[in-house]
Simulated assay, not measured.
Amino acid sequence: MNILITGGTGFIGRWIVKRLLQDKNQVWVLDNLANSSITNINEFRENPNFKEFIQGDIKDEELLSNIFKLNKFDICYHLAASINVQDSIDDPKTTFENDTIGTFNVLEQCRKYHVKVVFMSTCMVYDLASNQAGISEIDSLKPASPYAGAKIAAENMVLSYYYAYDLPVVVVRPFNTYGPFQKTGGEGGVVAIFINNKLDGKPQRIYGDGAQTRDLLYVEDCANFVVTAGYSDKANGHIINAGTGRDISINKLALLISNDSSAIQHVPHIHPQSEIQKLLCNYSKAQDLLNWEPKVSLEEGVKKTEEWIKSIKTTHKEDEGL
């Protein structure tokens, strides 16, 4: 198939590119590189099925129009977005314009050319898990940040095109995804940040009391889920979760990674109002509709991620001649 990935140089996007190329699809990537690097997809550039990288923004309607006009896409995996919760609280306008208006622009082109849309949403749209079965797709939403609000608005626009125009769409809500190629700084995920701190001999700084929990999904499991949702006609018109069905407190995660309780420091939360205390995924719908389930355990995923971060640090030192 001919497939467009917006946000394709990002952390999850580059793994989706990899899987799509493995499946012999023709792949185009659109990204403005605001929160990612072209180096994330360098290994794919010589693949004959990697058709083009386009540096551009989903807010640029003329650019989108030209891309869709020139290429007959079958699916658009739409990942381009502002993804930082704290940034959305400090600057809600940018997040709204990127995540909601940008999504509308993509939808309009997909409607014009009848291209299936796989919309990357987030578990941050949910209220906390209230039982041990975890959060399902019919559980309560709580837009506790402008990021979550913008994603919910975009989700509703995506689904409206399914009902109003019979456009094939699917909304995917992966839980907290981690793994190789995730940033290790402030914009990265908690696993990458903790591993980087451990390797640098820095303390593990935890917001609040650290009792908040996360359901941590390894990035290759996430990418396989997202790609499969695009391939499946049964997914059309649905919202689908992906996670592991296991949550871990941030305190226990820090201990798992650093193996040193003295390294843990608790600091005041910057935006406590946006914190979700318990995130636990019920992914039974993904099992039923897509025959999908996670394959990588947290312990194995942390090990793989640490090996990757170590390799990056080694390469960086070699480049600097250290």
Rank of each mutant, 00 (worst) to 15 (best):
E97G: 01
F104V: 05
A211L: 13
I138Y: 09
K18N: 15
K313H: 12
E275R: 08
G102C: 00
I257P: 02
T213P: 05
T228R: 04
K304N: 14
L217N: 10
G56M: 03
L141S: 01
I12W: 04
P272W: 05
E318C: 06
E300Q: 13
M120G: 12
I239F: 08
P272I: 08
L256A: 07
N105S: 01
Q212D: 14
T244V: 09
I38L: 15
N241D: 07
G230E: 07
I257S: 03
A154I: 01
N2E: 08
I41M: 05
E108G: 05
R19M: 12
R246Y: 15
F53I: 09
I3Y: 00
K304C: 06
N236I: 05
D57H: 03
L167E: 02
L33E: 06
G301M: 11
N251H: 03
T100V: 01
H238F: 13
V27C: 02
L279P: 03
E43G: 14
N49Q: 14
L70G: 13
N40Q: 13
D23T: 13
E137S: 06
A129H: 06
E108H: 03
I89C: 03
G201Q: 01
Y161I: 03
N49Y: 08
G10Q: 09
V169N: 01
V226P: 01
L128P: 00
F11R: 04
K59L: 15
P174G: 15
P174S: 13
G149T: 08
D23Y: 06
V170F: 02
Y147M: 04
N196I: 03
A148M: 07
F104A: 10
N42H: 13
I248K: 01
D139T: 07
L20C: 14
L255I: 13
M124P: 00
T39E: 15
N196R: 10
Q86F: 12
I309C: 09
A153K: 00
K313E: 03
S232T: 09
I138V: 14
Q26K: 15
G210C: 11
I83W: 09
I138H: 09
G7L: 00
T103L: 02
A235F: 05
P168I: 07
V85L: 04
N84W: 11
E293F: 11
T95I: 02
E300C: 02
N176A: 15
R111I: 03
I240V: 12
T100A: 04
Y165C: 04
T314W: 06
E61S: 08
T100D: 01
I54C: 04
V172S: 04
T315H: 12
L216A: 11
K278G: 01
N241T: 10
S160I: 00
V302D: 05
N241H: 15
A286T: 11
I54E: 03
I239P: 08
T244S: 10
S249A: 07
A263C: 09
G301N: 10
S284M: 07
Y113S: 10
G179D: 12
